[in-house]
Design a protein around this nucleic acid. Structure first.
Length: 586
RNA sequence: GAGGGAUUAGUGUAAUGGUAGCACGAGGGUUUCUGAUACCCUUAGUAAGAGUUCAAAUCUCUUAUCCCUUACCA
């Protein structure tokens, strides 16, 4: 059987480029250069992870280069905090950029010179119209715009005014530099687009050195060109900008020849990531943070990379997920469940097992003290991870009184309920088999105690020996537990989706209308096995330092940054799949 | 009312004129000291119509639907 390696459409374009020698000697793969160009105006989210993965993956695959470049062309919205968080997130993902971090602001001088060149070639002019007038003159879809009265001003006048804009003599909004392309273009982006505007705001890197800042369309292709990017990969909404991207580079190259021509990268667009029950809008996220509807940019319910990290997601699972969604031009809606699936796949293999009771009820073994040793504590062997032979074992205490999960006992259980009820027997994971004979309730009918007897022949969860007739007693269910006198109290945070609709904000236009008010449940008084914190030398370490566990039968958890020695705080990363619950919700 | 993209099982994604596959989901089963995991089985698709061709998911045309574009944001 021949294995066909599937190539997505961008890889196919690059394969063809390499064969034809478009960027260098035919067959030379190392010329391929990509970049990730975030604006430092917010935190990276899972959608960025897709973009990073595509561009970075291509550079690595071809043995080329991958740049991290901050597109810091708007000082009004950008902050150093975001530069730092973006670098941190990239490092967490395991994405290594080549060379030094790049900044668009490092190219401001070069861009300015090129802009002057365009003015001198009569391809750009300074416009003193107001923003409103410019919008008016741009026209509408389907009808042509009108020329600005400043469109044909003398070159020298534009050169002088542009210099004044640069030196800070002009107020915000009074003047812009525009490209002279044509006001009747069917593509509105091409109707004499603004190249520079005046922004008299200090820049987080260049301070007050500049008073004009380049617009995205003018800047982006030049940044790519300067860095020798071959394939400038971006999302679908930039398709209409590609003609402009090309126009600006062609305009600079107009009148140049040979080696004087600047490098002309190729922009290719792919569809951005969309996940049900979330919204990738930075504006929405910012609003949630600023209005304190969540606990900061790394609130575990958000979809920033920082929030996934805090919630306990692994970088590997995020990479697996974005790999799985593929690279196309189709506006796909990816099911949230796929992300959880990728997480479970990874954590199932790696997360050490522990026992924890989230909603505790006391279980009392009434025959425990029959030999007069009521306070006896036995140490039970427990396998740290059945999926990982190298993870070793640990010992956990077992005594007369245990905590079990409230949901594991029913007064009047249905036939298929494989847990406790009066007259039913279950296996306590790594412990003994216990049979229930009684229970206690408080005045409100809540269960307060479950009374059982244990079978000494079933230690360590093993099956008891066959009876005289050779029949082996069996038990259908296994439940988890924690020794009541030797355990740790903890706060556990359970998360549900932040939004209750598939496309937040779609219906009313305001995403806040779709906010799930019950997205956070804080449980206190949860009981963790005493040994939960002690990592045995056999157990794997997490490279990012986040401690992750599987609490058997309840899900994956990690230690939150709010934890202190006196108060343990855990986040539930994800539940385990639960076919029992699924069946009974129907 | 313009321009630019897109449309393949429920979802996502392959097949680039020559057998429509894969993954997830869903349903069922086996195994099991986690109702987890693992394994097995089942499930269902080329948006509609026309044309070119020996042959069309693939090329052409028409229609439908969805997304993007009317910032001195990126």
């Amino acid at each position: 059987m021949t294995e066909t390696i599937q190539r997505h459409f961008i890889q196919q374009i690059i394969d063809a480029d390499i064969e034809s020698g478009k960027w260098g000697p035919p067959g030379d793969r190392s010329v391929i250069t990509t970049r990730f160009p975030p604006e430092p105006n917010g935190y990276l989210h899972i959608g960025h992870a897709k973009a990073i993965h595509i561009s970075h993956g291509i550079a690595r695959e071809y043995g080329g280069k991958f740049n991290l470049r901050f597109d810091d062309t708007n000082p009004a919205k950008e902050e150093v905090e975001f530069v730092e968080s973006i670098k941190r997130d990239l490092q967490w993902l395991g994405t290594k950029w080549d060379g030094e971090v790049c900044f668009a602001s490092d190219y401001f001088g070069q861009m300015y010179d090129w802009a002057v060149e365009l003015i001198e070639k009569e391809l750009a002019y300074v416009d003193e119209s107001t923003p409103e007038q410019i919008r008016e003159m741009r026209g509408k879809v389907g009808e042509a715009g009108t020329d600005s009265p400043f469109r044909d001003r003398p070159i020298s006048e534009s050169v002088d005014l542009f210099a004044k804009m640069k030196s800070g003599e002009i107020e915000n909004g009074k003047m812009v530099l525009r490209a002279k392309i044509g006001m009747d273009n069917t593509n509105l982006n091409m109707r004499d687009p603004v190249m520079y505007r005046v922004v008299n705001t200090p820049h987080h890197r260049t301070g007050d050195q500049w008073h004009i800042y380049p617009m995205y369309d003018w800047a982006h292709g030049l940044e790519d060109s300067i860095e020798g990017v071959t394939h400038s990969l971006c999302s679908l909404e930039f398709q209409d900008h590609r003609p402009l991207y090309d126009w600006f580079i062609d305009a600079i190259n107009q009148g140049r020849s040979g080696d004087n021509k600047i490098h002309h990268p190729q922009q290719i667009e792919f569809s951005r990531l969309a996940i049900s029950y979330t919204n990738m809008s930075k504006r929405y996220m910012r609003q949630l943070v600023e209005e304190n509807r969540v606990d900061g940019w790394d609130d575990p319910r958000m979809i920033t990379l920082a929030s996934f990290r805090r919630r306990g997601y692994t970088p590997e699972s995020i990479k697996d997920f974005v790999t799985g969604v593929g690279v196309t031009k189709f506006n796909a809606m990816t099911d949230m469940g796929r992300l959880e699936g990728a997480l479970r796949d990874d954590l199932n293999k790696r997360a050490p097992r522990r026992m924890a009771v989230l909603d505790p009820v006391k279980l009392i073994i009434t025959n425990w003290g029959d030999g007069g040793d009521v306070d006896r504590i036995e140490q039970m062997d427990a396998i740290n991870n059945p999926e990982d032979d190298t993870a070793g074992t640990r010992q956990i205490p077992f005594g007369k009184e245990l905590w079990i999960e409230r949901a594991d006992f029913m007064i009047d259980p249905p036939k298929k309920f494989f847990r406790l009820g009066v007259g039913r027997e279950v296996r306590l994971r790594c412990g003994y088999w216990v049979k229930c004979h009684d229970f206690k309730q408080d005045g409100d009918g809540n269960i307060t105690e479950v009374h059982c007897t244990y079978d000494p022949n079933t230690r360590g969860g093993n099956n008891p020996p066959p009876d005289e007739e050779g029949k082996v007693r069996k038990v259908k269910g296994t439940i988890h537990w924690v020794d009541a006198h030797d355990c740790i109290d903890a706060e556990v945070r359970l998360f549900d989706r932040l939004y209750k609709t598939e496309k937040p904000g779609k219906e009313t236009g305001d995403h806040l209308d779709d906010l799930n008010e019950d997205s956070l449940e804080i449980r206190t008084g949860c009981k963790l096995e005493k040994t939960f914190q002690s990592v045995t030398p056999d157990e794997p370490q997490w490279p990012d330092g986040i401690r992750r566990f599987q609490f058997e039968r309840t899900g994956y958890f990690c230690i939150d940054k709010d934890s202190a020695d006196a108060k343990m705080v855990l986040n539930r990363t994800a539940t385990l799949r639960d076919s029992w619950a699924k069946k009974h919700h129907k």
